[in-house]
Nucleic acid binder design. Structure first.
Length: 802
DNA sequence: ATCCTGAATGCG
DNA sequence: GCATTCAGGATT
């Protein structure tokens, strides 16, 4: 057993397979599947993952593994196998899939160094660059305009060598610890001998005499109000000693989570949790779709199910959409399970993520709560997997590997023979359809906890407002309702959708709209520095004084940003205290929580925000929710537009009247008759499902059909069109007659960063050969993708059609 | 991806 | 005749 099968860190189709390496005496027994190793590959050294240890290879000139990067495997056997499956499913390289399963810091870093081998004189230019040293960075060589031809020559002559280095980025945070070095009477003796002026040193010795335990230097210094120099003196006298102790970076250190206890379940909850608990006890795999209205207490079901899993000594994975956005959720899990919980989300620094991941790897925690990638938590004894807000599109990764966390969850659920719970107030059509077909088990909770009724929803037709002469973005009804709540000292949440609210610049004379010269999209006006910025690339320019087309000075910005809404609102209701939450006000770390806490303490009447306030918020005093433009999502070119609108209105409405006070929701719309708005206002998911399914069926969209979206981009428009046409013809020819190939058409974003984008789409029900064909297409164009700046993107079951 | 090779191209 | 660019091939 001295041969390792290794997947190397070269994401290309030619290298997307295993390479065999000899395990030398030194590493025999130490190398295990799932470890990262450094292997020679051509002239360089690169990182690779060991998949398997065997004693046979068909290849005869094996090289040896150069070094190990891990002491214990970073991928479990299950994850290795999962990676295999996932790379097939998503048409991704093995290496990309494995990298996606691990924290960023475990990705290898590569460095090249030049090493001088002799004292012999080198060509003049080279001597200049080396400047007396015998080794230097290759990067520096290039920066100093090093000549590659000459370098090659001296390498061939054996005067210089290139060293290829592989480095790991991971760092383990260490804390300096201080403790007494000798028996205490030595300290006492030293204390007497210290000079009078050494006040701080005396204090420190007394400190240790009183409490001779190891203490962190940080703690010591703050306790004694002194600096490192005091410690240093005592260290020099050998009275104290220092040591390093590994510590976890703790992003949640300040918070003390009050312990919470299981709540008494409602009848709805009891009925729903029962089948889940049974699956846990019997240890069988089953997918549950937990459809519970907002405020029905889904989280409590998660918590109590997890408790059962923990009682059995098993582990739990909980996925939530971008958890940094819901500190309240973290609080509930940490409150119930304390230090058994690891939290993984995008708000953490790479080092913090690594530390949380290590707690999982070392089995120091039993529960992980995190965003999409937490589905790869290296647990080995999973008892339940929960996906909250399962309809959220953020569970689909938009770059390689293009996986959906739901699919991975179900796959792992089968592996571990454990239940998977998908929870939502507005399940995706895909999931609900599966539940109807009994592929998933449907659990329904139609009532809110505490017998609260669903909030009353009123739809305001904004066209009527306009006819009545109200040209603001707030209807008279909404304004009156806000003022009424403020008088009652109750709070208000106002939601506006960022999409359709960006501000563009147009000439009033000729209608010219300022567009990005590199992308097919209007520029966005930023008031802060009076500049126009492109949403898709780095381009920006100053706000023009005159229209570039007709030189009129009537060029103005249109549309409404959150900032502008805030100003208008303030003008309308001057006494209102407003907190605005959008990307601008929450960019700084922790500011999100700070604003929410302020709002929770009723330091503001109105919380005005975008997507980020749509879910998870739970404030007892909120009795009014306003949706400023409910239909702004309806007009995007996406067959899921109605579904997204329904989900959003439902989620936002759910923020009102969750506790003792009854809630009200006001929805402003220019198309109030649309069924997604009408049915959302009646909290009628079932009829929405029926109606929307009819439309999906008629237009051959999911869940009736599967989609494959192929997007091709290249700087040359003709080239792109030609490639997409070829691809679409190939698909047409080789796929069954039941499938439909649409396109080629320009992508909704037809040009980004000076690259033209065209796409074609396959609609199919059953197409087992499809992946083979797509692989062949990719193989065929591989060369052009490498050398000719051609880009082909294949998304199986896309969620983002742009 | 990156490196090596040898052939094609460009400039004087 | 030289350097520079390009296409093809290999990596255990």
């Amino acid at each position: 057993m001295n041969i390792a099968k290794v997947v190397v860190d070269v994401p290309a189709s030619q290298t997307n397979r295993v390479f065999d390496y000899l395990i030398s005496e030194k590493f025999l027994g130490a190398v295990q599947p799932g470890m990262r190793v450094i292997v020679p590959f051509g002239p360089r050294k690169i990182m690779g993952f060991v998949l398997e240890i065997t004693n046979h290879s068909d290849f005869h000139h094996l090289k040896e593994i150069h070094d190990l990067m891990d002491v214990t495997p970073v991928l479990t056997d299950e994850l290795l196998e999962l990676g295999n499956w996932l790379s097939e499913k998503t048409l991704s390289f093995y290496i990309s899939v494995f990298q996606a399963m691990l924290p960023q810091v475990l990705k290898a870093k590569y460095k090249k160094e030049l090493q001088r081998l002799t004292e012999e004189a080198l060509p003049e230019k080279l001597e200049e660059i080396f400047a007396g040293r015998d080794r230097m960075d290759y990067e520096e060589f290039l920066q100093r305009n090093g000549n590659l031809r000459i370098l090659q020559q001296v390498i061939q002559e054996g005067l210089v060598e290139i060293h290829y280095q592989v480095k790991s980025k991971e760092t383990i945070k260490k804390e300096t610890m201080i403790s007494p070095n000798k028996q205490l009477f030595f300290l006492e003796e030293a204390l007497a001998n210290l000079p009078k002026q050494a006040v701080k040193q005396k204090q420190m010795l007394l400190y240790f005499l009183k409490n001779p335990e190891v203490v962190s230097q940080k703690q010591l210094l703050s306790d004694l109000q002194t600096t490192r120099s005091t410690v240093k003196s005592l260290l020099d006298q050998d009275l104290l000693k220092e040591s390093k102790q590994e510590v976890y970076r703790n992003p949640y250190k300040q918070e003390n989570y009050p312990k919470t206890l299981p709540l008494e379940l409602t009848d709805d909850q009891k009925q729903s949790i029962h089948p889940i608990l049974r699956a846990i006890e019997k240890a069988y795999h089953e997918v549950f779709l937990l459809h519970g209205v907002t405020g029905s207490g889904k989280t409590e079901i998660y918590l109590q199910s997890i408790q059962e899993v923990l009682n059995r000594g098993e582990e739990a994975i909980v996925l939530v959409p971008e958890i940094s956005l819901t500190p309240q959720m973290v609080e509930r899990f940490k409150g119930r399970f304390g230090s058994d919980v690891a939290v993984l989300h995008s708000g953490l620094s790479p080092g913090e993520k690594y530390d949380e991941w290590r707690k999982i790897q070392r089995h120091e925690v039993k529960v992980v709560v995190g965003a999409r990638s937490a589905i790869f938590a290296p647990f080995e004894n999973i008892g339940i997997i929960i996906i909250d807000e399962e309809h959220e599109t953020s569970y689909k990764q938009e770059d390689h590997p293009r996986y959906h966390a739901r699919d991975v969850a179900i796959y792992r659920g089968k592996n571990h023979s454990c239940p998977v719970v998908l929870g939502s107030a507005t399940p995706s059509l895909e999931s609900f359809a599966r539940a109807k077909k009994n592929i998933y088990t449907l659990l329904t909770m139609p009532n809110r906890m505490n017998k609260m009724s669903m909030p009353a929803v009123k739809i305001v037709d904004m066209r009527d407002e306009l006819h009545a002469g109200n040209r603001t973005m707030f209807s008279r009804e909404l304004k009156a309702a806000i003022e009424q709540r403020m008088n009652k000292k109750e709070q208000i949440v106002l939601f506006l959708n960022r999409r359709g609210y960006s501000t563009f610049v147009m000439c009033r004379d000729c209608g010219y709209v300022m567009e990005c010269p590199h992308c097919d999209i209007a520029l966005t006006y930023h008031r802060k520095n009076e500049r126009l910025k492109c949403h898709y690339c780095a381009y920006e320019e100053a706000m023009p004084q005159l229209c570039p087309s007709c030189e009129s000075d009537m060029i103005r910005y249109f549309g409404t940003g959150t900032q502008k809404v805030e100003e208008a609102l303030q003008q309308l209701i001057p006494e209102a205290r407003i907190i605005r939450m959008d990307i601008d006000t929450t960019r700084r770390k922790g500011s999100h929580e700070k604003l929410l806490n302020q709002y929770g303490r009723h330091e503001a009447d109105i919380l005005l925000g975008t997507q980020m306030i749509a879910k998870g918020l739970d404030f007892a005093n909120v009795t009014l929710v306003g949706v400023l433009a409910a239909d702004s999502l309806l007009h995007i070119p996406d067959f899921r537009a109605a579904e997204k609108t329904f989900q959003l209105i439902t989620q936002v409405s759910g923020r009102a009247g969750r506790h003792k006070l009854p809630g009200e929701v006001i929805i402003q719309s220019y198309t109030p008759e649309h069924y997604s708005i009408q049915l959302a206002s009646k909290h009628d998911y079932n009829n929405f499902f029926v109606k929307e399914m009819e439309i999906r069926k008629a237009f051959q969209y999911p869940p009736y059909y599967y989609l494959t979206l192929i997007t091709v981009s290249h700087p040359n428009q003709v080239k792109v069109q030609e490639v997409v046409r070829t691809i679409s013809q190939l698909l047409q020819k080789h796929l069954s007659s039941h499938s439909r190939v649409l396109g080629p058409t320009p992508a909704p974003l037809s040009r980004v960063k000076d690259r033209y984008r065209y796409q074609c789409m396959v609609k199919y029900k059953n197409e087992p050969k499809q992946k083979e064909i797509l692989k062949k297409i990719l193989d065929y164009y591989q060369d052009e993708m490498q050398r000719n700046d051609l880009f082909i993107q294949i998304d199986l079951q896309p969620y983002q059609l742009m």
